[in-house]
Amino acid sequence: MVSTQQEIVGRILRASTKGFTCGTSSRQVDTRHDFGAFVKVPIANDGDCCVIGLIYAVEIKDDQLVNELVMADSVNPNVLLDQRENRMVPVEIDVLNVGYGYRDANGAVINGFHSLPPRPPMSLTDVELCSIYEVFTFTQRYDFFRTVINASDVPSDDLLAAALRYASQAYPENQRYEFMVHCGQHLARMLANDLKRLSHVLALIRPA
């Protein structure tokens, strides 16, 4: 899932400093668009500064034709396939901003800040999946937990859990458990006054 190659998730449809939505054709949707994946995109008028976000929703919109095909009695399978793959409506991917950082000499965004970016990305900018290194360095600190936990209109508990499971893959196998324990400890401190929520999130990230 996480890889070192440059992998485009989509292009910006709408954006704000809090988050953005990017779109891609339905043909492209795959593991790059997993719930909880880390993505990055340069912000407006600054090629070096990238916002880092978490995918929290992937939406496949309907249109008139789809509505009709759904109602139709019998449809030629080729028409269905064609309609599924060559739709004119993009798949929308919603991203929650959790930090930003600057590219290093190799183009990697490492040692980012766990706070919202100064500006949003511009429309149609390419959104990329973060590399394994970027995920590793970004998750050395836990400050972005709070952004996720406090985000409204986002399934924050599930998102955080998914993001952490995703991030753990960036760690060598023998360090994953420890990483999860550290994350859990940080959560335990953050959610100390909401023990029900804490135990729920812990149940979600608990390594098998």
Binding site: Y177, M180, Q185, A188, R189, L198, S199, L202, R206
Partner: peptide, 16 residues
């Protein structure tokens, strides 16, 4: 919490 679970034990002790 159920401290017999090593993960939960590691998380809770020293924090909450």
């Amino acid at each position: 919490p159920d401290i017999s679970d090593p993960f939960l034990s590691a998380v809770y002790t020293g924090t909450a």
